[in-house]
Simulated scan of single mutants.
Amino acid sequence: MFRRNRAAMIGLVVLCLIVLSAIFGPMLYPTGPFEMVWAPFSPPGEEGYLLGTDYLGRDLLAQILHGARVTLIIGLSAAVVTVVIGVTVGALAATTAASWKRR
């Protein structure tokens, strides 16, 4: 059913591209997110910067890739912490309920 839904498949491809660019982008893209060059406010495509530069001359694409990696790490960490807390509370609730049934 999921494969037949065109919008769902497009969303999955976009999500995979975002995750892959967050994981491998900083390794493949040579410019660091905090490196400054003397080219403030360069338009996209000029001087080798695909998305241009900001007011300090930092590459915007490098900043986006770095931010995506940080966001992915924070999101996965929050999900793992939530699962651990949920499983712990659920297990404690189940054992407490089971001990109350025996009485």
Rank of each mutant, 00 (worst) to 15 (best):
F41E: 03
L28K: 14
A39M: 09
G48T: 06
P33I: 03
L50N: 07
F41Q: 03
Y49Q: 02
V37D: 07
S21C: 15
F34A: 10
A22H: 06
P44Q: 08
P43E: 14
G32T: 07
P43C: 02
W38A: 05
W38L: 11
V37F: 08
P30A: 12
G25D: 08
V37R: 09
P44W: 02
Y29W: 15
V37L: 10
S21Y: 00
P43D: 03
E47D: 10
E35H: 12
T31W: 01
E46M: 06
M36G: 05
L51S: 03
P40W: 04
P26E: 04
I23Q: 07
M27S: 14
E47H: 10
G25Y: 02
P26T: 06
I23P: 05
E47A: 09
Y49M: 04
A39V: 10
P44E: 15
S21I: 02
G25S: 10
W38V: 04
I23S: 01
G32Q: 13
S21E: 10
F24R: 10
P26H: 02
E35K: 11
S21V: 03
V37Y: 07
A39Q: 02
P40L: 06
P33V: 00
L50I: 15
G32D: 12
G48V: 02
W38C: 00
L50D: 09
Y49D: 05
S42W: 05
V37A: 09
A39C: 11
L51N: 07
P26F: 02
F24Q: 06
P43S: 12
P43W: 04
G25I: 04
F24N: 10
F24Y: 13
A39D: 08
P30E: 15
T31K: 13
Y49N: 12
E46S: 11
E35M: 09
E35I: 08
L50F: 14
V37C: 06
G32R: 13
